[in-house]
Design a protein around this nucleic acid. Structure first.
Lengths: 171, 171
DNA sequence: CTAATAGTTGACCAAACTAATCAAGTATTA
DNA sequence: TAATACTTGATTAGTTTGGTCAACTATTAG
C-alpha cells in the first residue's frame, strides 16, 4: 500500500464519476473525462493516465466516440478505495527483497513482516470503504453538501501553503 | 499522512536503533549510523538526512565524537510509527486548498473532508503502534527471529553480524 | 605529571547528481 | 468528439562527494 497524491486524485475522480453517473439514474450518457477535469480541476491528460489504469484493472468501462466517456464497471457499493489506489499506485517495497521470503538465512528479512502486517492493516481499512460509503457520508454526516470543487479561484495557487494541510482533524 | 519508502526506511532505522540500544540495558554506547547502515543496508548519508529530521523533531538525541551516535529521546514504548513517518515525510495535500476551509462557497471543497477523515483514520492506527509493539511482535508472534537484514544477495558484507538475533528484549 | 598537539571517530551540513515519478501539454487516431 | 500516444518540464527519492565541528585518545614537550 502506498499513499500519494496520485491515488487521491484517482479516488477523487472516481467519486466524481460515481456522483455524476448516479445523477442520471436511467443510465444515460457516460461521464467524460473533460467534465471530471473541469469539476475537479485535475488536468485532462493526467486523468487519461489514471483512467487508462483504472480501465485495465476493470474498475471502469470506456465508451469511445461521440457521447462516449467512462462508466463504473461495478455498482459503486462494490468499489473500494483500496481498489482504486492499488489500480493506479502500484505498491512499493521497502524490504528490498521484492517480497521474496528467502532473502536471509532464517527466512525473511527484518522488515518483511513489519510492513506486511502494516500494509494489510491499512489495506483492510481502505478496502472497507466504498464509493457508496463516501457519497453517503458526504451527504448525511456533514452539513457540507457535495459541491464541485474549484478551490483555487485563479489557478495561481501552486501549493505553497501545503505545509499546514490536515493535522487539525480529529476522528 | 503519506506513505512512501522514505518513511519506511526511517521506521526500519528507528527499529534497529531501538533493538541495538536495548541490547545494552546499562545504557552504554549510543548507536552509530554506520552500524545501522551496515545492518539495514541503507546508505549512510541517507540515514544522516533522515536522522537530522528525527533529531530536530525530538525523537532521538545525538552524541558527537568517538563513541558517539544516536539514542532514542524517549522510551520506545512512547515512540509511534506515526511520529516517525511524520518527522521525515511531510504530509501531502491533495485538496489543493491547502487545508483552508473557505475555498468554495458553502465551505470546504469536495475532497476536503474525504481525505481529512481518511488521514485521521490511518494516523490513528499508526499512532497506536509503538516501537515497543514492533519489537514485541517480532519476538513473540513470529517464529522468525530478529536478524539483521542483508537482503541483497552479495554485497560482500559477509556474515559478521549474522548472530545478532535478539531474545533479550521484551516489552 | 601536566599541557599542548595531532589523529581518530562520528555527528552535521551542503551541494550536486541520477533516476524515477508527477503533472501537464500536444499530436494522433478511431 | 473523445480516447490514445508521445513529449516535456517539475518535483521527489536516494546516492555520492566533500567538507566542518565536537569529543575522545594517544603522543610528546615542558
Amino acid at each position: 500500500m502506498r499513499l500519494t497524491t496520485k491515488g487521491r486524485f484517482a479516488v477523487t475522480a472516481m467519486l466524481d464519476l460515481a456522483l455524476n453517473e448516479a445523477e442520471s439514474l436511467t443510465k444515460t450518457k457516460p461521464v467524460t473525462l473533460a467534465g471530471i477535469s473541469q469539476r475537479q480541476s485535475i488536468s485532462l491528460s493526467y486523468l487519461e493516465q489514471l483512467f487508462s489504469r483504472l480501465r485495465r484493472q476493470g474498475l471502469v468501462n470506456s465508451v469511445r466516440g461521440p457521447g462516449g466517456g467512462y462508466r463504473l464497471a461495478k455498482n459503486y457499493a462494490d468499489i473500494s478505495v483500496a481498489e482504486i489506489i492499488n489500480a493506479v499506485d502500484e505498491q512499493i517495497d521497502a524490504t528490498q527483497c521484492g517480497g521474496h521470503e528467502n532473502c536471509r538465512d532464517e527466512g525473511r528479512c527484518m522488515t518483511h513482516d513489519l510492513w506486511a502486517t502494516l500494509n494489510s492493516k491499512i489495506l483492510d481499512y481502505l478496502a472497507g470503504v466504498s464509493l457508496a460509503d463516501m457519497v453517503a457520508s458526504q451527504n448525511s454526516g456533514q452539513k457540507v453538501l457535495i459541491t464541485p470543487r474549484t478551490c483555487s479561484s485563479e489557478k495561481a495557487n501552486s501549493g505553497q501553503d501545503a505545509a499546514h494541510a490536515i493535522e487539525t482533524v480529529v476522528a
